[in-house]
Amino acid sequence: MKKIYVIVLVMIVAGIALLINAAGDTSTYSTFEDAARSGGKVKIAGQLAKDKEMHYDPQKDPNYFTFYLTDTEGNERKVVLLREKPQDFEMSEQIVLTGKMKGDEFVATEMLMKCPSKYKDEEIYINAEKENS
């Protein structure tokens, strides 16, 4: 057999092994219950509970922000984000958190927010309303 083929074969095997290994780096979006059960680092997707209190007091601690999140199963938990409060946070449609449960709180180290697109047609409608009134 040609040595090129040997090398390619080795690479393919290595690649498959790596990908199988990499499957361990992935996870599904968890719920608070899963997070409490596993105790490990998970990703949670959910929505901001807009009626609940948000707390960020940078004068006390600029890296401490709390809010409530409703996960995909509808459970609501307090979330502690160890970062500054992001801009436009109230506008977020969906939030993805990385972190783990500590007691009753979910301590998140990272957060991704999905905000409504800026191409909103709102302005058109607002102006139209002004026009009608």
Binding site: L82, K102, T109
Partner: peptide, 14 residues
């Protein structure tokens, strides 16, 4: 917050 790894993330100052 208890635990060591959270300290690492305190990157902001006022």
């Amino acid at each position: 917050i208890e635990g060591g790894d959270s300290e690492r993330l305190k990157n902001n100052v006022l």
